[in-house]
Amino acid sequence: MTTVAGKRLVDGYALVVFDLDGVIYLIDRPIPGAVEAVARLHAEGRAVAYATNNASRRSSEVTALLTGMGVPARPEEVLTSAAATAELLRDRLPDDAAVLVVGAEALRAEIRAVGLRPVSTADEEPAAVVQGYGPEVGWVDLAEATVAVRAGAPWYATNTDRTLPSGRGPLPGNGSLVAVLRTALDREPDVVVGKPEPALFATAARRAGSGRTLVVGDRLDTDIEGARRAGLDSLLVLTGVSDVPELLAAPERRRPTHVSFDLAGLFEPAAVARVPGEPELGGWSVDLTAAGLVLSGAGRPLDALAALCAVAWSASVGPVVRAASPAAEEALWALGLPA
């Protein structure tokens, strides 16, 4: 079995840290079941925090968005990459130092809030360049940042998410905009603050004291890798960016502790699986062939996934899976895998 009968996943942790986009909401609409899950945690008196790489909203704005959806969040529970980057710059630069900001107004506001001065051009001789996601970022912004970095200003990126989720599928994220500067400058940013760097999760985990922390995310390359780098357990929910094929092909640094279809996995033992499992698990059997993985038997789709992870990860094979039984075909369909 992948879970202990009757034991809820959440009961093993003092703090649950949620990513937002793809876990709690999608852009500005709650993901089905998310509001109820967070409300249940609050009703049980459990500690909750939110860690987001989205640098286009301030903590207060995120709190307002959450409360507008029915989630009773407080600003001190919300950790954003914009605020973390501003605090880092505050510690490294003199008061009122000029900082060239490429991103949304929320990032400029965070820079002002720590006593620094946001500017828009390289001619203002910025002491640093900070780059975060903003839907209005254009060529002129990127050009000014390029000039400033070439003149010697250190380059800070709030995060490097290649994409961000939307109702129309993944769209270019800050990592894609960072890639423009990376190409123009032929170098990496000097500092990346957001996930998968461990700072956001480490800050949240300190609030749990001696208790254990669980990170819940939808992205292997940010949420899950960041949790592992912070030494924390993680739950991958399949409501956002990362899917089952990506999970089966994940390198070790991006492998979660648990996986579930959605946040029901926090409370229902049957709705979550610990990964990897065993090649023979819960009525399933997985064999490795020259053509890929073969799934046979019958049982829970999540048990099939745990068994598939066991073989795929140990053999470092890709997500090519063939069904050897009608039940296996149904399980692979439920997991989003072609049979």
Rank of each mutant, 00 (worst) to 15 (best):
L89K: 06
G132Y: 08
P198S: 08
T85D: 03
A184K: 04
G22M: 07
R212Y: 02
W139V: 13
R274F: 01
A307I: 02
V23H: 07
G103L: 05
V193A: 08
V78P: 14
L26A: 04
D123C: 00
S59V: 00
A291T: 13
P198A: 08
A34H: 02
S314A: 15
E330T: 15
L200C: 07
D221G: 05
S242T: 14
P256T: 07
V259R: 14
G297K: 05
A109V: 02
Y133N: 11
A39C: 13
V10D: 03
I24G: 10
D190P: 06
S59P: 15
A270M: 00
T257D: 10
L305T: 10
A271E: 12
A304D: 07
S296V: 10
S325L: 08
E197Q: 15
A310N: 09
E329K: 12
G217H: 13
V286H: 11
D21S: 07
S316W: 00
C309V: 03
V241T: 15
V140T: 14
L302D: 13
V101H: 10
R229Q: 11
A312G: 12
A83W: 03
A323P: 06
E225P: 02
L100Q: 09
V62A: 02
G70C: 06
G115E: 05
L107Q: 05
A205I: 01
V275D: 13
E329N: 04
L308S: 13
V38I: 14
T85I: 00
P319E: 07
G336I: 09
L308C: 12
A106V: 05
R108P: 01
A204Q: 07
P30D: 04
A264G: 15
G297F: 05
V4A: 12
L107R: 04
